[in-house]
Write a protein that binds this DNA or RNA. Structure first.
Lengths: 334, 334
DNA sequence: TGAAAAACAGCAATCGATTGCAGTTGCGAG
DNA sequence: CTCGCAACTGCAATCGATTGCTGTTTTTCA
């Protein structure tokens, strides 16, 4: 692959001049610039970013750390990240991590590649992510708490509050809640919100109707739904902390002959594609992952530009989508 | 950030020795190696891959070109790609392309970063992808035809054949077919298979029941379903060339009071999550994107090792999943 | 036309590693 | 004690760009 030296030799011009001619806003005569560009084109010259980065000591690479398997969550974030990164002139090096030792490996790679910054969007919650980075490389965390580090998070507390109040407004008092993994950022914020709302309204949650699961999968919702609806006493509404499990709950309800929302109302959280595809269409609150991804890159680039800027914790607001999965407690559709 | 020179200076050992001590299988005394490693650890030395790559003239980077938006297709491929890349010691640089000029930009980047190889998995069909690469950098295409280049494709023809024959076996003769975008690799292979099977069985397809759409979206299926089932003469089976549209067809059928599979049988293609989530669960044929992604990396790495290897075109086989969305033509469930 | 200023081109050092070759050290055997 | 060989270490060049400084050419204007 050809280099500026090839051009330099063929044109009998020094490498420095070639280098300057190839970049705009530099002091070279139009004539020389044109000759150089023509020759570069002719021999198929491609700049070597590796060499450049070594010299100028900065890279155009942003490390993106996501879950092992691409899923709706990581994909949506990655979309936002990509869009913003491109807009701001960066490229993305991805690493799908399978656990915390793997996160460490990812950081080693990002360090070794001298990434300009790192975005951590894996849902594993490490206690103390910062040390991984060797302190040198700016980073932003998505959906993690980290005092000393830039973060962008959704307003899960507010979202879950809206959802819970919506159900209460419809007259529901026998409400079951399905929680996700206990160490998840989302579970914590959302569960807290639900508890706070219930307390504020003086509604008590039955212990056996607050059910925790170790993952967010559809099957969990189905299984919980079967258990919940199989009893003689059943809730009039189910608040699932995510859409996938809500989908499962809906399946269970229908399988047991319950009408949704006539016999039981269901709300989810996230505005996953599933929410729209479910029948009835699921009432839910969006998790604005796209904008979170974009925002993360923006924060990161700001910090790259000014490493001493004060730490920022941005909260991105989603919005509620009232669809067809809820009714007044008596069964009156809304 | 510290370098081997820092270690060299502090330990009063030459940089070359430090370099050797840091890598296994090199001739340095155990004592020196240990001192170097300790010091490296102590000062938090991180190897600079950029410098290394410049020197040894090879990189650990694989470029991955996918669709603009992450979707089920690109995510599944990326999963396989990631897994295999990690296993083989490569990292992934991703680019989400929005069109063919953008693909060119992606290739420029991969070139500039001196990627060891490139995997193209975007569904846009460029007529002649090869020239983009400047001929220097090995590449593998997923789901594209390209004679002169390594490719990995699914056996869509066989898959669609199975699906079509399955419907015929169940006695269906009034079959509607929904096609995806005309320039898609998948549409072409699958549509051809369906036509060939029909011809072989002496069954004719009504022209107005072979319906083409410009994308693979759920809504298209819904809309087609409404049209199809709204007429007095309606097909007894619908063969959708993908699962998402099949999902839409199912919605339309139910909305119009038709029972699936009692009144109409539906098959999809891809084994998207949707296929399993649909009610009834959708009969379909898997598109083995994961394995395709892995295979692509394997082929790529082989070629990186031996640039003159003959071109390979690998076909990855999926499997059929018979679930609950089809019945015998009379309505007898299967 | 000539002098000063501006524009342009080139030298050489540099980024952080790797590696062939040469020089040095250490060890064992005679 | 000395020689020979193996093991180890260091020198210096190299990868492909960038850039401060210096030197040269061109332009401008009196």
């Amino acid at each position: 692959m050809s280099t500026i030296y090839d051009i330099s030799r063929r044109l009998n011009i020094s490498p420095s001049t070639v280098s300057r001619a190839l970049r705009p806003n530099t002091q070279v005569s139009a004539k020389v610039r044109e000759r150089v560009k023509d020759e570069a084109e002719r021999i198929g010259y491609r700049p070597n970013l590796i060499a450049k980065q070594l010299k100028v000591q900065k890279s155009n690479l942003l490390g993106l750390l996501v879950d092992e398997k691409w899923n709706w969550f990581s994909s949506s974030i990655a979309d936002g990240v990509q869009a913003a990164a491109r807009r701001l002139g960066y490229s993305i090096l991805v690493w799908n991590s399978v656990g915390s030792t793997d996160e460490r490996a990812a950081m080693e790679l990002f360090c070794a590649m001298r990434a300009a910054g790192v975005i951590v969007a894996s849902t594993e919650m490490l206690d103390d992510p910062k040390p991984l980075l060797g302190q040198e490389i700016p980073s932003v965390y998505i959906c993690r708490v980290a005092e000393e580090c830039d973060t962008v998070v959704p307003d899960d507390y507010h979202a879950a509050t809206c959802l819970a109040e919506y159900l209460l407004d419809l007259g529901h008092r026998d409400i079951a809640v399905i929680l996700g993994p206990p160490n998840s950022f989302h579970t914590r914020a959302r569960a807290q919100a639900v508890r706070d709302v219930m307390r504020a309204w003086g509604v008590s949650l039955r212990d056996d109707w607050v059910i925790q699961r170790q993952s967010w999968r559809v099957e969990n919702g189905y299984e919980v739904g079967m258990k919940l609806f199989g009893c003689s006493e059943r809730p009039t509404a189910v608040l699932s902390l995510n859409d996938a499990m809500a989908y499962g709950v809906n399946d269970a309800a229908r399988e047991l002959g319950l009408r949704v929302p006539g016999d039981v109302s269901i709300v989810g959280h996230d505005d996953h594609d599933m929410a729209f595809l479910m029948r009835p269409r699921l009432t839910t609150f969006s998790l604005p992952l796209n904008r979170m991804g974009e925002r993360a890159v923006e924060l990161l680039v700001e910090r790259i530009g000014d490493p001493d800027r004060t730490v920022r914790h941005d909260t991105i607001l989603g919005e509620m989508f009232v669809r067809d999965s809820c009714a007044h407690v008596g069964g009156r559709s809304v």
